[in-house]
Nucleic acid binder design. Sequence first.
DNA 1: TAGAGATAGTAAACCGGTTTTCATGAGGCG
DNA 2: CGCCTCATGAAAACCGGTTTACTATCTCTA
Lengths: 348, 348
Amino acid sequence: MRDSKNGTRRPTIKDIARESGYSKTSVSFAFNNPSRISEKTRDQILKTADRLGYIPNPMARNFSLQRHLSIGFLLPQMVQYSLKNPYTLEVIAGIGGVCEKMGYTLTIIPPLHKSLALAVRNAAVDGLITLGSQIDSDIITVMQTRLLPFVMIDGPSDEKTSSIYIAEEEAAYTQMKIALDYGHRKIAIIGLASATFAIDEVSESVSAKRMQGYHRALREQGLDFTNVTTMVSECSLEDGRQAGRSILALPSLPTCVVTMSDIVAIGCITAFREAGISVPDQISVVGFDNIEEASTITPALTTIDQPATEKGRMGAKVLFSMIDGTEEEPVHHLIEHRLIVRDSLAPR
Amino acid sequence: MRDSKNGTRRPTIKDIARESGYSKTSVSFAFNNPSRISEKTRDQILKTADRLGYIPNPMARNFSLQRHLSIGFLLPQMVQYSLKNPYTLEVIAGIGGVCEKMGYTLTIIPPLHKSLALAVRNAAVDGLITLGSQIDSDIITVMQTRLLPFVMIDGPSDEKTSSIYIAEEEAAYTQMKIALDYGHRKIAIIGLASATFAIDEVSESVSAKRMQGYHRALREQGLDFTNVTTMVSECSLEDGRQAGRSILALPSLPTCVVTMSDIVAIGCITAFREAGISVPDQISVVGFDNIEEASTITPALTTIDQPATEKGRMGAKVLFSMIDGTEEEPVHHLIEHRLIVRDSLAPR
DNA sequence: TAGAGATAGTAAACCGGTTTTCATGAGGCG
DNA sequence: CGCCTCATGAAAACCGGTTTACTATCTCTA
């Protein structure tokens, strides 16, 4: 006897059938296919259902219909990092907007026992959107084995799976180039710490591609990575602040910090301000993402705009087209990026 | 015949049973109750499962076990607002952290066909967390009818349902009082637009309680609402910016803006900066929430700290204790708030 | 060596809906 | 009047797992 604390049990379709004197079938029709039964029958059933406080069990319904009415978003990292990164949040908002329109819920899927693959195995969703490069082949295998439609945003590129991406190398090149064009030669780069988790196909990771872009820009000036200081940071305000402090602790202060993430850039600026170092007078900072806060902070951030919400929206749209069977072939969407020049970068 | 595009079908437990020569029961035991069968049998079954690429169907599993392994977060408003409000996001992050620890996913539930109650009816979750005051009696009725455990954060107070809250009236009083103490008399209040949706028990809404606090502080100075300009704004940066522009358009500029939300305060400051109005020299701004950005913006925001992440964490903990049956009685957690004095408020 | 108990396996019920298939009766039409 | 069609309702299969209850065999002990 399946009952709740107070001894009551939710009425099932069977209870309504018995109580109203009709069959399970008719009760089901009363709710989902009114034209299939007479109006009088429908009224009686509905009245009975109302009297007993019947609400169809969503799980049973979904199980029978073989659908979840929810899509999943695979958190790239632990919750404490992922959900503190405005970029991720903007992507989620983009996905959420489409879900709302489609009448779906959005399931946020954290790693299960530290394992993303395990979380994907158990995820009760109709499709999955991933973000970032730490999607290894294990995870992809699970999704494919489950025949689960999925779209990768900023993921490792693969012809056979749908993806939403920007020209990472080109964007990073542009970002570094503007710093160099402004005369900076003593540069610190803050990369993405999470990228260190990417096991296979390292060269396909977002971090690696951007590094290639940086390298190209440096090379054009006759420089290479030996001329710059490189460090990594998690994508959160607090970690960015820490990174900023590390830079302040360097034997000699760089004139420009190039980060792979706005939130880290903002953290740096905060750290610099706390130390009484003026941005951009004493040190310039360049960000990446163009999150909303980039324009409200002082100084406003010079950064690369990649429309995060749009990425999420596009990813969700593609996923839904796969779910409803409209789209058969994997699609690849290149999202435009652009340089946003604001105040945090000043000439050397 | 249920099959995917390429004509394949996911193998079920039955297929593994047939293929391995054992029964469904044994296959189930092989995965969930190894001690129940011999090692040899288990090996053979597992090998077969592996060969066929069998992954237990999560929906069927959950249905059989009568649980979802997911809790829901009911979005107070449309996605475009809710997920653009850092306060909401911090609450979500708090909930998410607990979910991760418990091995649960977090289902973000937007209104379905504009209706929150309908969304709750269909939500495939083991419990629900609500945020804000627009939880009307319809929604509560649905949750109770479904025997769904739920916790309300910042919700309308009700003895019989679990809640997480702060002393709204007192906090608002403190917030207004500091503005008055600094000598401000020409004040604009920006309230919560969403509060207008709260149908019943209006006096219980967060917005109403805070207004009472404002009123008390004003009264102590011999003032009342006729002395202040009141307007409302959605909780997003952009709407806050709009509100700021409205204030600039006022016949005479107030000396201080008291907002019910940091993100709106930041939006205002942005609008003021765009108009060349200096904060706090020409106009002061006081916020509410103490979101992370409050400390990074220039000028740093004077605000009321209410630990959003902690609220989410606490709400989730309470909910899980209800789900696993530990907690029988409704619990009510009062979370501490405090005044944070920073730079956006200056003496008149 | 009979009986008890442990071990290993299976059949069938169950979770709560949806949907296919079938039965019955009424009405329409030639 | 006989046949066909349509309207209405119900029985039963199905979705894919888990779990209870039962059986058969093997082992140990008195």
